[in-house]
């Protein structure tokens, strides 16, 4: 295929998306009432998927999405054209979900210490690690395995689960995560490492070869 001015097909697709977003933002900032419904129709499903990862109930996830769109509507005038609309909305729905989580009653939680590796006095692991049976990319294709992984994430204590979601799933930086949670960057790093270790422990018995 002949490329126009060195821009690939994928590049043009991305540029088209930015152009459509820019048009939508301009209409929103001009007070076009139809533009808001277009925004909601275009982005409510991706935002709902994000909120569902944080909030355990569908009702609370939908409330967070509604909070996010109201917040976006109020602050659209401050939207910087240098940002991606999807990235801006993503950040807003993450914050709305975190706000909802803070108001919810906590569930009984397992002690994360029980899921961390244990060591002998000489520094070796009490139970040496064994390689998993298949590559992760293949295992996670199976719906059964995907369910096991999601259930294991759900078992993590809340302060660890949230950091894992923000860093490894939503791909926010350490600094962005620290700011969103009001904790230090070092605390984010410590919680993330412990969350990954605990999740690894929870997955280990399933991944050693008993998932087919």
């Amino acid at each position: 295929m002949r490329l126009h001015a060195g821009v690939s097909h994928l590049g043009r697709t991305a540029l088209n998306a930015i152009s459509i977003d820019a048009d939508l933002v301009a209409r929103l900032q001009a007070g076009d009432s139809g533009a808001f419904e277009a925004l909601v129709r275009q982005y409510s499903m991706p935002l709902l998927r994000v909120a569902r990862r944080f909030l355990r109930s569908e009702e609370h996830a939908r409330d967070a999405v509604q909070d996010a769109f109201i917040s976006a509507y109020k602050s659209i005038g401050r939207f910087a054209s240098t940002s991606r609309l999807s990235t801006w909305l993503h950040r807003i729905v993450v914050n709305a979900s975190l706000m909802r989580l803070r108001t919810q009653r906590r569930h009984p939680e397992e002690d994360i210490e029980s899921h961390l590796p244990r060591f002998l006095e000489d520094g070796h692991q009490v139970a040496p690690s064994v390689a998993w049976s298949e590559p992760a990319d293949e295992m996670v294709q199976r719906e059964e395995v995907r369910g096991i992984v999601r259930a294991a994430i759900d078992r993590l204590p809340e302060q660890y689960r949230i950091v894992l979601l923000l860093r490894d799933i939503e791909e926010m930086t350490t600094e962005e995560t620290a700011e969103a949670l009001g904790i230090t960057a070092n605390a984010v790093k410590i919680r993330l490492h412990r969350a990954r270790q605990a999740l690894r422990t929870l997955l280990d018995p399933h991944m050693r070869g008993a998932t087919r």
Partner: peptide, 28 residues
Amino acid sequence: SCVAYLASYRDTIRMAKAASIDADADDP
């Protein structure tokens, strides 16, 4: 043992991401 731990730690990160992302193109 540490080689196996490192590989499974890395796999844990990949699987958490892959299992959490729902690519269904549902209507809202």
